[in-house]
Structure formats: C-alpha cells, structure tokens
C-alpha cells in the first residue's frame, strides 16, 4: 500500500498550525489564570477571596471536561469567535479553552515552588505586588515554567488528534480517516511515528532550555 505524501505533509502543517496558534493563546490565557490563582490565594501578595473562589472552580471545570465533549459543546461560541464551526481554525478555539486552564495549573505549581523567602525579601525591599511578580516570582520560576509549557504542548498535540471531529484535519485525523477507517495500517504507523518524533523533539528542546536556564554545571 502507498502512503499519500501530499496528504501527510498537509496534515503535518495542519497539526503544527493548530498547536502553535492554540499554544500561543492558551499560554496567554493560562499565564493570566495561573498568576491570578497564585497571587490571590490566602496569604499571598494580592490575597482576594472573591476572585480566587471564582477562578479556581472555573479552571477545574474546564480541566475536567473531556476535550471531545468540549469540542462540540462550545460550537456556538466558536462560531461567534471565528465565524465558522468547522475547519482547522475552528478547532483552535476549543483547543485554547482546553489547554489554557491546563497551563494555568502548571504555572500555578511552578510559581508556588518559589521559596517564600524570596517574596519576603522583595517585600522588605519595598517592591510593589506587580514588581514582585515581574522581577522575583517569574524569573525564579522561569526554568520550571519552560518545562510546564513543554508538557502542555505535548498534551496539545494529543488533543489535536480529535480535531478531525470538526473537520480540523491534522495528523490524528489522517490516522483515523485514511488509516483506521480504510484498514490502512501503514498510514496509521507512519502518522504515529511522525507524532512520536514531534513529541520527542519538543520535549528535548524543552529540556535543553530548562537545563540551560538552571545552569546545571
């Protein structure tokens, strides 16, 4: 059996397109939510119970909805945002809503790892809450944030496989429509190998960055 090269290359591009755009917006969303979750919690620099007790459950809800359900459940919202509910671009909206809350939890964990002493020192210096976040928390958590984003990216690649459900295309879609439904095992194998390679590559890049930033000697 012959694997259609043209289709594969197109699918790779669709996957990369979905992952990169969704990651970009998802990271922004996750970053805002993650920082909010940290600084508004009890005893932290901008303790705010109302905000925390709204954001925290919202993140939990989005984290617990299976992506395939989210994908179809928010179709009206997707149409509102990008004007269509099918196609690669349409798949990006649910991807963002899926990965954003996920990233926010990872960022929350990374920021909470920063020693409280650092915040105390910052306060003693007379830093504003914004400066504490910008100049103390984020630089200290940066290597760990890189790993978080790496993990999120890989999760995102997995989620794009389901984008076929709304005609989003991508490698996962090729594996199902051309491979699984036509009993074409070679196509399945090839797409899986490509996916594994992409994941490996991203993880390695993430690790290299993180190690550089931590200056492991």
């Amino acid at each position: 059996m012959e694997v259609n090269r043209q289709i594969l290359i197109e699918a790779i591009w669709e996957t990369l397109y979905m992952v990169s755009i969704a990651l970009f917006f998802g990271a922004i969303l996750g970053f805002i939510l993650g920082v909010t979750l940290v600084v508004t919690r009890k005893g932290h620099i901008l303790e705010n119970k109302p905000i925390f007790s709204v954001v925290n459950p919202i993140v939990n809800i989005f984290r617990s909805i299976p992506f395939i359900i989210l994908l179809v459940a928010i179709i009206p919202f997707t149409r509102l945002i990008v004007g269509t509910s099918i196609g690669t671009t349409a798949a990006i909206v649910p991807l963002v809503l899926h990965v954003g809350p996920y990233i926010s939890r990872l960022i929350e964990n990374s920021l909470l790892e920063v020693d409280d002493g650092i915040i105390e020192a910052a306060k003693a210096m007379g830093a504003t809450p914004f400066q504490i976040i910008r100049k103390f928390l984020l630089p200290e958590a940066f290597p760990s944030l890189i790993l978080s984003v790496t993990t999120a990216t890989i999760g995102l690649i997995g989620a794009t496989a389901m984008a076929g459900a709304v005609g989003g295309g991508g490698l996962g879609d090729v594996a199902i429509t051309y491979g699984y439904q036509r009993f074409d095992n070679v196509t399945i194998l090839v797409t899986v190998v490509i996916l594994v390679a992409i994941v490996q590559l991203i993880q390695s890049i993430g690790n290299v960055f993180e190690r550089k930033l931590r200056r492991v000697r």
């Binding site: 020192a121 210096m125 007379g126």
Partner: peptide, 16 residues
C-alpha cells in the same frame, strides 16, 4: 523601606 535593610537566615537570594 529603602531606609531599612534586611538580611535573612537563608539569604533569600534570587538563584536565577
């Protein structure tokens, strides 16, 4: 606070 310096048991330096 700029008039009051402080040092700590565990130094509290930014490792980055």
């Amino acid at each position: 606070k700029k008039n009051i310096g402080m040092i700590f048991q565990h130094f509290n330096l930014l490792n980055s």
